[in-house]
């Protein structure tokens, strides 16, 4: 058996294809089956589950990262909206404060004006009273001077001046 195997092997290597040398077939088939079983066991027990897990994990990580990115984007949008709102509010507040300040100033101004006008009016009235007093004083003095002058004139003319009639005459003249 051993000898025939050697002979056929030698023949095949001398001429023809080694692929058709049937004596090596059992050897090749045996080692092929061993190899395939070993590869299958390694792959199905270790390599393929591991690679599958890594790929699944990566897919999960990517999905999570995308979700997180979406969330962050939404939050950023929210923050932007809040910022915009705050800005609008601040503007409105500022406008309100300006209006209030204006109104306050206006009110104060109005009050001051009124006060000033009242003061002016009071002063005017006072002045007018003083003028009237002066005027009254002046007409009294004129009256007295006129009476005295009239008495003197009447006396100088030789008449006897009645004080009452002189006063009446002066008063009548003054009115006219």
């Amino acid at each position: 058996m051993a000898d025939t195997a050697v002979e056929t092997g030698a023949e095949a290597s001398g001429a023809g294809m080694p692929q058709l040398d049937l004596s090596t077939f059992p050897n090749q088939i045996f080692w092929l089956v061993v190899t395939l079983v070993v590869i299958y066991l390694i792959l199905s027990r270790v390599a393929l589950p591991r690679i599958g897990a890594v790929l699944a994990e990566r897919q999960g990580t990517i999905t999570n990262d995308i979700a997180a990115a979406e969330e962050l984007k939404a939050r950023a949008k929210e923050a932007e909206a809040a910022y915009d709102k705050a800005l609008v509010d601040a503007r409105a507040e500022a406008g309100k404060i300006v209006d209030e300040a204006k109104a306050e100033m206006q009110a104060e101004l109005d009050a001051q004006m009124q006060k000033a006008e009242a003061e002016i009016a009071a002063q005017t009235a006072e002045s007018q009273a003083a003028i009237a007093e002066i005027e009254a004083g002046a007409s009294e003095a004129i009256k007295a001077v006129a009476k005295d002058t009239a008495k003197e004139i009447v006396a100088a003319l030789g008449g006897k001046a009645d004080a009452r009639s002189v006063t009446a005459a002066v008063n009548a003249r003054m009115k006219g």
């Binding site: 195997a5 080694p18 050897n27 090749q28």
Partner: peptide
């Protein structure tokens, strides 16, 4: 393409360690 045993002389049995192995 020759199949030959790696160790020693002799025929190639089904269990022989060859270059295929």
């Amino acid at each position: 393409f020759e199949v030959y045993r790696l160790f020693g002389e002799g025929p190639v049995h089904w269990y022989t360690i060859t270059n295929v192995t």
